[in-house]
């Protein structure tokens, strides 16, 4: 390698490093600024409700990196994921036949429009009144709230299957389960993913409030207990944990979506001509 090349490589490396640093500054700049502001506000105002980020961080490890993680956090998350998965299966399972049959769809539409419009959190007091909210009922709350966006989006997606692709399947004798897998579900997948995304945030809402309302354990319960007993830093740490849960679940979802819909992004980009 000549000196010249070495110099070039060094230059590229340092340019890459500079670009990396700029990207890091862009990414972390504003969050750092906001945290600093928060810190300053907490310290200078001396407000009882406003805890500074340092204390929250310390409390966070103290409160959640303990057996509480096993007793309160994991069961909640398990419940959330179970309910969400059941809702997804149910929503897609019912949505596909509804999407494929015009008659069924026409018959079910008004009822579905109504059921979808019911704000899911009202199910919490209802089920509480009827059977009390044990873990399985909390799962039922999550399922019954999450199923609608999945169901309705699946119906829309299945309905919009491209007629040329459908003809192609008929010509080549593709039917039954292979048709379902290769044509119906795949072409509806962008819509189904949109429905699953909406369902995810509803699932979190339902998990938290069903625990706040009626439970003696779980993440939502713990946070409300801290608030009631005016354990402010602990409450803040709970809020942070709920926030992190939302962020992590949404990141995992975004990853799965990117993977499942890679073809869709490519197709869109190609049809826009870039």
């Amino acid at each position: 390698m000549s000196a010249n090349e070495t110099a070039n490589t060094t230059a590229t490396v340092s340019a890459t490093a500079r670009r990396g640093a700029a990207a890091a500054a862009r990414m972390l700049g504003l969050p750092a600024l906001l945290i600093a502001l928060w810190w300053w506000a907490a310290v200078s105002s001396g407000s009882f409700f406003l805890t500074d980020p340092g204390t929250i961080a310390a409390t966070f490890t103290e409160v959640w990196v303990s057996e509480r993680f096993l007793t309160d956090v994991l069961p909640s998350v398990g419940l959330l994921l179970t309910g969400y998965a059941l809702a997804a299966v149910l929503g897609i399972g019912v949505g596909v036949p509804l999407g494929m049959s015009t008659r069924l769809r026409a018959a079910a539409e008004p009822v579905l429009e109504f059921l979808r419009a019911v704000p899911p959190p009202v199910l919490v007091p209802l089920l509480m009144l009827l059977v009390g909210l044990d873990a399985s009922m909390r799962t039922a709350v999550i399922v019954s709230g999450c199923v609608w966006p999945v169901l309705l989006n699946t119906v829309e997606g299945v309905r919009a299957v491209d007629p040329v692709l459908a003809d192609t399947c008929r010509v080549y004798g593709i039917r039954g389960r292979r048709r379902l897998g290769v044509l119906v579900l795949r072409s509806a997948s962008p819509q189904i993913m949109a429905g699953l995304r909406q369902a995810l945030s509803i699932a979190i809402i339902l998990m938290v409030i069903s625990e706040m309302f009626a439970s003696s354990s779980g993440l939502g319960y713990a946070v409300v207990q801290f608030q009631r007993s005016f354990a402010i830093p602990e409450m803040w740490s709970g809020i942070v944990l709920l926030g992190l849960l939302g962020v992590v679940l949404s990141a995992v979802f975004a990853r799965a979506e990117r993977h499942a819909l890679a073809w869709h992004r490519g197709l869109r980009a190609a049809s826009r001509g870039d």
Partner: peptide, 20 residues
């Protein structure tokens, strides 16, 4: 119905191929 030994090529190539 579509016979098993017949193939069709459609005009809308963009829509007759499975993009996924």
């Amino acid at each position: 119905g579509p016979p098993p030994d017949m193939a069709v090529v459609f005009q809308e190539y963009g829509r007759s191929l499975f993009p996924w």
